[in-house]
Design a protein around this nucleic acid. Structure first.
Length: 714
DNA sequence: TTAGGGTTAG
């Protein structure tokens, strides 16, 4: 390497410093060492600052080592940069050691320590330091106030924020932009939008992109998208160019503010490729359901960080594209990006999806272990839900038992898991355990508990929990809770009570509530209430096939063929497409799908032969088909034939002929299992000596030895 | 020579 002269190196160093070329500064610092140039205090402070800016702990430590050797460690400003370096590298205890060991301190030392604690999330300790500054008679600077206000914002301490506002004015910083912006943020975080807006109006001279962005964000978070949009255009009219922060903020208002419009503005800037902005845009497109646009944006992001990858993963997950998410996860691994707890929990959630194979979830359980994330609450709770949804409530419970720490989500996942499987007693046991430990609960907890009662037919118990939730826990019932209660009453045949509950709700029932009522009217063949439910559902969601199909089924079951025909015609007129009934079964890593009367499977002949064989055995058992569940106006015999070809039966027949005797079968169905199939599957489990698990659109059924875990409440 | 205001999600 050519010998460079000392003055060239120093000139270079100064040049890099002035231009903020952080990584070059550090490299040059070490090169100077090699060339025997002795750094002075200023060189050390600069090198430490550049290590701080890049979060380069290793290099920062090396500089610290050199500093000790050089004997320059007593200068106050050098210690300040040292503290700052450790704070930025998230070693707050080292910063504290430096701070405590300082013989002399200036205001920057105090401010730095305070800011370090804030960035470490230790707000209360930082606040203590502020009081210490005041108690020791040290004059707070503008920066002390900014940091102290920042603490108020994070602690949402409005009273102290207002006091500091007074101090700021008294100390002569009343026109200082940074202090006012910090105050603006504090008011916004305390949800004092009126006060924030007044302050913003007073800031005429000092408003800038930052204060505009903060206020826009505040309005969006409080659901006032109109004001946010107005402010956004106002700021542009006033000649303030939105920056990367502004764009990420305004994009969070999707879908209320169109991501397409914001994207048009973005294309003209350099921000589109920023990870932060690109990721926000990606999320915005996901929210409006445009996965194609989302993935185009993703491709454009330069230096994709873990957040960008997670966002794309969520985007596929939301679209229900299991394969897409898994491919993306693998691509991420190929690029050497280490998955974190969030990417892992996302992919595990994807594997809980209806079309995902059971083994895929298990595979990502293994990945979590590989990356030592299996005990992270986020990951383990996702595992509980995944195993529960994939039919293995035993594995779900194993993960739950192994959790070294639990939060509300973990408890809720386990309760809902047991409830969906019809293990009402186990779900309630978990709930009682939560009660005994005095843990906090929310509406989701009670949704699980009420669902457990529904699937076990415990109407009175369910009612008791509903009241407990309102009276003892002060939780306001949400629409979903009401929907569960309607289901609880309805399943038990108490349709009038369900209707009374709907009429007494403090808000208008939504489509979900009417759909549930309609569903139970179908089970209990209640034409009158069924009509009311269907009418309301059609008003709210005219394209939802469930309203038409269920009502026409109710008419069919009541023998009202003419009315049924009218509904079918209405469906045709409105071009409503019926969701086709599909059943899946996984055999040897391959998922096989069936529709009713399917003959496309390669083993179709054998499947139908097996069904014939089962039919004979069923007859011997005294089974009589319940043709009420066939909903065409057909001859009786023909109805029987149609019943026998429901998709779940085809899947089961296929399972029986392609797996060893005695092994369990697992079926997934996108609609609900019909009553006749339910009876048949119970008998098949006995005749064939198989445990059969069926996950329908509503819950799990574990068939074993002639009975079902749902106890016929479903 | 060092501190100090605003985004993103599971």
């Amino acid at each position: 390497m050519p010998q460079r002269n000392v003055s060239t190196l120093i000139a270079l160093f100064t040049g890099y410093m002035q231009n903020g070329l952080q990584d070059e500064i550090l490299d040059l610092f070490f090169q100077m060492q090699c060339e025997g140039i002795r750094p002075n205090s200023f060189t050390f402070a600069t090198a430490l600052a550049s290590a701080a800016a890049q979060g380069e702990l290793q290099k920062g430590r090396m500089v610290h080592g050199q500093l000790i050797k050089s004997g320059n460690e007593s200068a106050v400003f050098v210690c300040n940069s040292l503290m700052n370096m450790y704070s930025k590298c998230r070693l707050i205890n080292n910063s504290k050691l430096v701070f405590e060991g300082m013989e002399y301190r200036n205001s920057i030392s105090w401010n730095s320590m305070m800011a370090g604690l804030v960035s470490n999330g230790s707000y209360r300790e930082a606040l203590k330091l502020y009081f210490q500054i005041r108690a020791e008679g040290i004059k707070p600077t503008q920066s002390s106030f900014v940091t102290a206000i920042n603490i108020c914002a994070n602690l949402k301490n409005l009273v102290f924020a207002r006091q500091l506002h007074g101090c700021v004015v008294k100390e002569g910083y009343g026109l200082d932009g940074n202090s006012l912006t910090a105050l603006l943020v504090a008011y916004i975080k305390c949800v004092e939008m009126e006060e924030a807006f007044q302050l913003f109006n007073l800031m005429a001279e000092t408003r800038n992109v930052v204060s505009f962005t903060a206020l826009i964000g505040g309005y969006i978070q409080n659901g006032n998208n109109d004001k946010a949009a107005i402010l956004f255009s106002e700021m542009r009219k006033d000649g303030f160019d939105p920056n990367d922060f502004t764009y990420s903020t305004i994009l969070t208002a999707a879908p209320m503010i169109s991501p397409y419009l914001i994207h048009c503005l973005l294309i003209k800037t350099r921000y589109e490729c920023f990870p932060s902005v690109g990721t926000a845009l990606l999320y915005a497109y996901t929210k409006v359901g445009n996965i194609h646009a989302a993935s185009m944006v993703f491709e454009k992001i330069e230096e994709k960080d873990i957040v960008a990858w997670s966002a794309m993963l969520d985007s596929y997950a939301q679209a229900g594209d299991t394969e897409g998410s898994i491919k993306l996860f693998k691509a991420m691994a190929r690029e050497g990006v280490v998955p974190n707890e969030f990417t892992l929990s996302s992919i595990i959630n994807v594997c809980a999806g209806i079309t995902a194979a059971v083994d895929q979830g298990r595979q990502f359980h293994a990945e979590s272990i590989k990356f030592r994330q299996q005990d992270n609450i986020c990951v383990s709770s996702a595992l509980i839900t995944m195993y529960a949804k994939k039919g293995s409530i035993e594995n779900a419970y194993k993960v739950f038992q192994k959790q070294s720490a639990r939060d509300l989500v973990s408890w809720n996942s386990m309760i809902s898991g047991f409830a969906q499987h019809g293990y009402g007693k186990s779900a309630l046991d978990i709930f009682r355990d939560m009660e005994a430990r005095g843990l906090e609960m929310d509406d989701i907890t009670f949704i699980g508990v009420i669902m457990a009662c529904t699937h076990t037919g415990l109407v009175e118990e369910g009612k008791r929990y509903f009241n407990l939730m309102v009276k003892n826990h002060g939780i306001c019932p949400t629409m979903e809770v009401y929907a569960c209660m309607v289901d609880l009453y309805g399943r038990a045949g108490k349709l009038e009570e369900a209707m009374k509950l709907i009429n007494g709700m403090p808000f208008e029932a939504d489509a979900m509530v009417w759909r549930i009522l309609l569903g139970v009217c179908r089970v209990h063949r209640n034409v009158e209430l069924g009509e009311i439910a269907a009418e309301n559902l059609m008003k709210l969601e005219p394209q939802d096939s469930a309203a038409y199909v269920l009502l026409s089924n109710i008419y069919a079951a009541a023998g009202e063929w003419e009315k049924k025909g009218r509904i079918r015609k209405l469906m045709d007129d409105r071009k409503v497409k019926k969701e086709a009934g599909l059943s899946w079964i996984q055999v040897k890593n391959k998922v096989h799908a069936f529709i009713a009367s399917d003959t496309t499977h390669s083993l179709s002949d054998q499947i139908y032969r097996k069904l014939e064989e089962i039919k004979l055995k069923l007859k011997e058992k005294g089974y009589v088909p319940d043709t009420n569940f066939v909903l065409h106006d057909l001859e009786h015999e023909h109805k029987e034939a149609l019943l026998a070809q429901h998709s779940e039966r085809l899947a089961i027949a296929f399972g029986l002929i392609s797996t060893p005797d005695g092994s369990p079968l697992q079926i997934v169905k996108n609609l609900r299992v019909c009553g006749d199939c339910h009876t048949v599957i119970k008998l098949v489990s006995e005749i064939e000596g198989r445990n059969i698990v069926v996950r329908d659109s509503n819950r799990f059924h574990h068939f074993k030895g002639g009975s079902c875990s749902c106890g016929d409440f479903w």
